[in-house]
Design a protein around this nucleic acid. Structure first.
Lengths: 152, 152
DNA sequence: ATATGTGCAAAACATTTGCATTTCG
DNA sequence: CGAAATGCAAATGTTTTGCACATAT
């Protein structure tokens, strides 16, 4: 997991400026550790600490941070883009179990896909940089509730 | 793979009406067999055969067809929702290799994930209905082009 | 000094909705 | 007939952009 200083240094190295607005944005970002946050949510957090920051500044900063690889865009079909902090030191990513009933997103660490990756690289002549697995179904809470029902 | 008649019958059974607009929409849909189409693209195809159909009608029909399970929404981060025809008779879905350079989407059939699914159902107490795997990297064309370069 | 970033309001964009009218069953 | 569907235009909601001004390096 990256810390604030790493991001700030990387910004400077890239020729980007480190403004107060960006500092606060990064600060708030760090408090989102395990969460999937939307730009709106980030904006609200930033506004609490500095009410004069504009929405578009947040959008622009998020775009840069994504280009730099510090955050990754995710899509959970809830109307807006969500992001999460990347863990650059880990080779493999976690995956998501998404409940079709309540929408809960459960994270899951896994390295099973390494075998599959090798196969793909050989068979398909494709160089793999990253992968993303979403598993849709029913979480234990919702399974309990719907026990006995038909799932469609 | 479903045919037009199956869809039409299912619509009637559900209490939906089979209008000329919907018939054309389904017709065009069938020509999209292997493609990932956007609502806009579907709309253009429909308009060619019946210029008086409105965009919102297409949106509404797509929504119904998705609820019915004939098409599935996909997100390739290109600005709009994409859909593809479901193959209801196949238990497992195909996955997507997405080229980070040219954006090409390569399909891949696979059943490796069955082992992983079992593990998830046990460990996480999660009932799996479906899963979706996206693999990001560089396709053979783009790998050729960028050979020797740094991938960032 | 100058490239870069900012805030604001306006634009762009896909998607949804309200409503009067039409059509399928 | 009556429920459902249609087309249009307007509304929605997120994200982007143009621009004049401000600021980091």
């Amino acid at each position: 997991m990256n810390n604030e200083k790493q991001i700030v240094d990387a910004l400077r190295k890239r020729g980007n400026k480190v403004t107060p607005q960006r500092l606060v944005t990064i600060e708030v970002l760090m408090t989102f550790r395990e969460q999937h946050f939307s730009v709106e949510e980030l904006f609200q957090g930033v506004k609490q600490r500095n009410p004069d920051v504009g929405m578009s500044t947040i959008y622009r900063t998020v775009q840069i941070l994504e280009e730099m690889g510090f955050i990754t865009k995710r899509n959970f079909d809830d109307g807006f883009a969500r992001y999460e902090l990347c863990e650059l030191d880990e080779k493999h990513w976690h995956h998501h179990l998404i409940c079709l009933k309540c929408g809960k997103v459960i994270e899951m660490q896994d390295d099973f896909l390494e075998v599959l990756e090798k196969e793909i690289e050989e068979k398909k002549e494709f160089i793999i940089i990253n992968h993303e697995l979403k598993v849709y179904g029913y979480c234990s809470d919702c399974y309990g509730i719907t026990k006995g029902e038909q799932f469609d």
